[in-house]
Computed example of a mutant assay.
Amino acid sequence: MSMLTPPGMGGKYRVTGNQYPRMRRSRSKVRVAAVVLTTVAVVGLAGWGTLQLVDVFGGTSTPAKTTAAKATSPAKERACKAAAVPGSASSAPITFPEPGELTVNVYNATAKSGLAKDTADEFAARGFKVGTFGNADPEYDRKVKTAALLIGGHGPKAEAAMKLVSAQIKGTSTLKPAAAGSGRPTGTVDVMLGNGFTKLSGDKAVEKALAALARPSAAPSAGTC
């Protein structure tokens, strides 16, 4: 035992200072290291929590968000490509009927005389059945601005019939399907010749138009691609 250690202290205290003996317990190195590590851990957690709050309220991207976005973008890209491919599941190919399976009624909605009969004869020469022809009703007379207004039945078959007829007409035709439950035959198309009508298209133009109509491209919805 040191002479400077008070009796009964068992050597646990040592004298320090130069004026008055003060006794202080010796520090443990392990304790000091534990305190330092605990302080570092607390500061680190506080900093991480602050960054999370900034991310939530500031709208910035975190590595987790970036990884998730990268993981979903290939699937989204494939879906957009599939929607844009003609003939894909979102735009099934159209099967057109034969001209002989359709009945075409031709009406003249213009001021040109004899237009309905001449056009009806051309449709008949192409294999279509011609029902009636003549002047359009007042509802359509002088009111069709496009090459023709095509009025048909309801459903996919009626749509295919109207598109087959529209491919025969040079210029833009407007399609007007009937309402569901109207009972209008799907194989009958009324052709209202409008102010933009000039003539029927040639064979090559008809083939090209049918090829384009058979496999329409489905445009992706806004905001998905």
Rank of each mutant, 00 (worst) to 15 (best):
M3N: 10
M9D: 13
M9P: 00
G11H: 12
R14G: 08
G17E: 06
N18I: 02
R25E: 14
R25F: 08
R27S: 06
V30K: 15
V35E: 12
V36K: 11
T38F: 15
G44A: 15
W48F: 15
Q52K: 13
D55H: 13
S61H: 01
T67P: 04
A69I: 04
S73H: 08
P74Y: 08
K76G: 07
A79E: 06
C80W: 12
A82Y: 01
A84C: 05
G87S: 03
S90M: 00
S90I: 03
S91G: 08
P93M: 02
I94H: 07
P97E: 09
P97A: 03
E98G: 14
Y107D: 02
G114N: 07
L115A: 13
A120I: 05
F123G: 01
A125W: 07
V130F: 00
T132S: 13
F133K: 00
G134S: 14
N135A: 12
D137Y: 13
K143D: 04
A148E: 04
G153V: 01
G153A: 05
G155F: 11
E159H: 07
E159I: 03
M162C: 05
L193N: 05
T198P: 06
K199C: 05
A205V: 12
E207T: 06
A209Q: 07
L210E: 11
A212F: 09
R215W: 00
P216H: 08
P220I: 11
P220D: 02
T224A: 14
